[in-house]
Nucleic acid binder design. Structure first.
Lengths: 352, 352
DNA sequence: TAGTAAATAGTGTACGTACCCGAAAATATA
DNA sequence: TATATTTTCGGGTACGTACACTATTTACTA
């Protein structure tokens, strides 16, 4: 069996247009050096043939290399979350490296905004075509983004977005809706009229903006449905177990809570507290498919986990840069991730 | 910026081994015509260099074509379900056709097992390297599978599996667990001790085996949890609205039902019945992200939809054949799909 | 109108691999 | 030893595209 030897490709275009391959090449890449007349003719033929360049041959012949930087938090002792996007990025890289894609990784600490600046500056000193970043710290990320724009470097955001700014694409959850879904799920856990606590656990204020979006979405569910539930919010600026425990204990001493919504992956910290103190009457909703969280989901201490495909975010993030540069495709400005619900019953089948 | 001009590729291997490129090529594809000594030497060098062939160049230079047949149900007036796998297949094909992949489609009617045989025979008369099929009718599919095995044609199953048979891969849901999850979801909808009805809607008995697996899984949840709920099952061998309606009405006249579990995408038919008859006190769980189902999910008539990534099933199905033949990768025998839960709140973000 | 610069078009090689074909070496047969 | 066979290997071209380099045509200047 043979590959389709139908006349196709630049050679056939050249033959039909009575020009050389090089001329066809010129109009395809719309370079200069072709008269308007021939250009028009060739373009017509290309359209008529519905010519699609052979990407294999193209990238084989091209000596071009695209360099992408990745700027995301380092996986921390407190949460393994960022392992997932990294895994997705590496998977994508493996698929496209033969097309001439180079990737350099830069990691900052989620509880230290200065490290973001350090890594960002390293990137700016080097030379990259595109950057895949998690803009955890709004003002720092914004500053960096503008510098990139000035240098004509394309950015793709993952995990959380920044308002009023337009990267090549945002790939991640709709944070508001994600929170709203959490609110909705509460109706399956407790009757209306209960006491609900939104619990934010985050060291850096700047990295917290996306948690607040979730909280807002969560609250909106109750407002829109004229719920008689009471929804309060508590924020802890420490992420270690003892601090979280202390703050939570203090709160629970004065107030009754029927359902607790943790706005990020730190839900396992709360679950651990519930477990050690034998608290079984508070329903618990949180985020992310992490081993520690799954453990508590399995045990029934966490009732629902909401997940947003972190691996896929990384995977799509790098592929988006690739599509833009190598395949020069038009890119969706926003690529929202699904809002997945994990329970004790279905988590085994989840693909992060 | 230039591509890595580090010495790599067959040329470098040939240089190091003091042989020609052709000889290296011979050992790579372990063809005959190379002395044991040189073969050994070249293999050592390949290992040492950790040589990875450039797939682009390989497939560009290769004149090989792989022909795959796709044998799945035609999208019917009653359910658009099979549009989704088809979409996934076409997406995958678009990505790999430049690697020399040909795909021919064959469609059978889900309510007529004879059409399966007709199409299957067409496939056997032609010449294909691999087949992607939905083995809806067990005995017919089994017969076809054995004929393919005899002709050394590789098969990939999607959507439902057949026991005691080993295709190249099965890509689809774990039907038992899927049903079990549905059972679990019931606890969020009705208190324990309720009356539950499993409802199968399927014309052909043979195409129903995977529905029964779901039903078994569903029941197992109640057994394992020592539930006091009553679980009955009803099967209708017509798929048109009037027949379904009649059967259901007859059943409901004699029995009270608190929750109804429809084992396939026909749940919208039931929902329509509920809507027109203003039945609001029966919770409804069903399958698949179809426009009609989503409509009733939005309206609150369907409470949960379970989805199993039909598009991805098709996508992965074709890619699996491709990986096996073109990239000669080792293939996972079973590729289970996630069991996704859709509610009114999160369906908008679902990727089928 | 020659002479020159600018615009336009063509030729040829390279990318990394596959594979045909023929040459050389090794072995077998006479 | 001469010839025929077989085994082993190298040369060279092709895949479809990119691009550097060269050749031709056209337009412009003096």
């Amino acid at each position: 069996m043979q590959k389709n030897n139908e006349l196709s490709g630049v050679k056939e275009i050249a033959r039909r247009a009575n020009v050389s391959i090089a001329t066809v090449d010129r109009v395809i890449h719309n370079r200069t050096g072709v008269s308007a007349k021939t250009k028009e003719k060739i373009e017509a033929i290309i359209k008529e043939m519905d010519y699609k360049p052979n990407l294999l041959a193209r990238s084989l012949a091209s000596r071009k290399v695209f360099r992408f930087a990745v700027l995301i938090p380092r996986e921390s002792a407190e949460t393994e979350y960022w392992k997932a996007p990294l895994e997705g990025i590496n998977k994508a890289w493996a698929e496209i490296r033969m097309y001439g894609v180079e990737v350099v990784f830069f990691h900052y600490e989620l509880n230290d905004r200065q490290t973001f600046n350090n890594e960002a500056n390293k990137i700016l000193k080097d030379s990259f075509h595109g950057i895949l970043l998690a803009p955890s710290f709004i003002s720092e990320a914004l500053e960096f983004f503008y510098k990139c724009e000035a240098k004509k470097i394309k950015c793709v955001f993952i995990n959380s977005d920044i308002s009023n700014v337009s990267p090549l694409s945002y790939i991640g959850p709709d944070l508001f809706q994600s929170g709203k879904l959490a609110g909705n799920l509460s109706k399956y856990l407790i009757p209306d009229g209960g006491n609900i606590l939104i619990f934010n656990v985050s060291r850096e204020l700047g990295a917290e903006h996306h948690l607040l979006k979730k909280a807002t979405g969560f609250k909106s569910y109750f407002e829109e449905n004229n719920s008689s539930s009471t929804v309060n919010m508590l924020t802890v600026h420490r992420t270690d177990y003892d601090s979280v425990m202390a703050e939570l204990a203090a709160y629970l001493k004065d107030s009754t809570v029927d359902l607790l919504f943790v706005t990020n992956s730190r839900v396992s910290t709360v679950a651990k507290y519930f477990e050690t103190n034998n608290i079984t009457n508070i329903k618990l909703i949180g985020y992310d498919y992490l081993t520690r969280n799954i453990e508590y989901l399995e045990k029934g201490i966490i009732d629902f986990l909401i997940c947003q495909k972190p691996i896929e975010q990384g995977y799509k993030g790098l592929l988006t840069l690739y599509d833009y540069f190598v395949e020069s495709e038009k890119i969706d400005k926003v690529q929202l991730m699904p809002i997945d619900i994990l329970t004790k019953e279905n988590y085994k089948y989840y693909k992060n």
